[in-house]
Design a binder for these strands. Structure first.
Ligand code: MN
Ligand code: MN
Ligand code: ZN
Ligand code: ZN
Lengths: 148, 148
DNA sequence: AGTACTATTGTTATTTTTCACAATAAGGAC
DNA sequence: GTCCTTATTGTGAAAAATAACAATAGTACT
């Protein structure tokens, strides 16, 4: 059977005493299928279609759990609120503070920095979804033209 | 008078129509004096000693405002909850997922990456308090010795 | 000092997120 | 399949964070 990789990961966690509940599977599946950032309540809504009386509490708890196990990524995307995403592909984000326009940054760009920090501190870093902020070219232009 | 730099910044904001309220000054002062990460409720508590009936709402609002204006920094420090800090010195953080041990990373370490991203994307980045996660040397050791 | 304008505050209500605890069900052993 | 252990769930309540709106008070101007 061709189960998605994240479900396989979840199965593997049983060796450590964790359990593969339908709630967990559903949440993971939602994130896999969407492949985008989702808020806890969006996840609750979508997963709730498969699991009749899924609780928000359970969603929060499992997002926490799955994030700790490295199956999902947390993103702080400016808005203040946290969103989640499948950990399928490693990438980071760059957001414009003004207009909200965003660009993905794939992990290779950060690799040299990660290596540098690892060498310097002895930590083993994990590639956890960093968000950078700045001003996009368009917005920077507007600022400049406004000046004169 | 030797007012702290951040109060000067706040004064400067009046040119843009913003106001320097005692609540704002108190919040900023608390962060300056502590020089550490503080949660909104801690800030409310401390600033409340100067401003008799300061509201939590006002604290949240002003932390938001001050962050947007670049006077305070937001940090996502693993715990899930957000903490704030004076923007006096530019630095970033590295946390151990296991034991919580943390190291400061000063911004020079990231400067090459920032330049790289700026060149590649055209964005002008701001140096906003990035938090990295990983496993510290001690915890990595324990993991290894446990294996055998 | 007094006035006018409006950014900011406190109040109240709502939403989002976390907690504690008893009831449930996943997974291993037989 | 049945039994046992305990990780995980739902429930109910608390805490943290946000929103709407009228009352307040900074600031510029006279
Ligand atoms: Mn992402
Ligand atoms: Mn910091
Ligand atoms: Zn922009
Ligand atoms: Zn550690």
């Amino acid at each position: 059977m061709s189960e998605p990789a994240s479900i396989q990961h979840l199965l593997a966690l049983r060796a450590q005493g964790f359990r593969m509940t339908p709630q967990r599977v559903a949440i993971l599946r939602v994130l896999d299928e969407c492949g985008c950032h989702l808020s806890p309540s969006e996840i609750h809504q979508r997963a709730g279609e498969m699991i009749p009386n899924l609780t928000e509490t359970t969603v929060y708890r499992n997002l926490d759990f799955l994030a700790q196990q490295g199956l999902v990524l947390i993103a702080h995307v400016g808005s203040g609120r946290i969103v989640y995403e499948s950990a399928a592909h490693h990438h980071h984000h760059l957001y414009c503070r003004h207009c909200g326009f965003s660009v993905d940054i794939n992990h290779e760009e950060l690799a040299p920095l990660y290596k540098h920090i690892q060498d310097k501190t002895g930590f083993i870093l994990d590639t956890s979804h960093v968000t950078f902020f700045g001003v996009c070219p368009q917005c920077a232009n507007k600022e400049n033209t406004k000046e004169n």
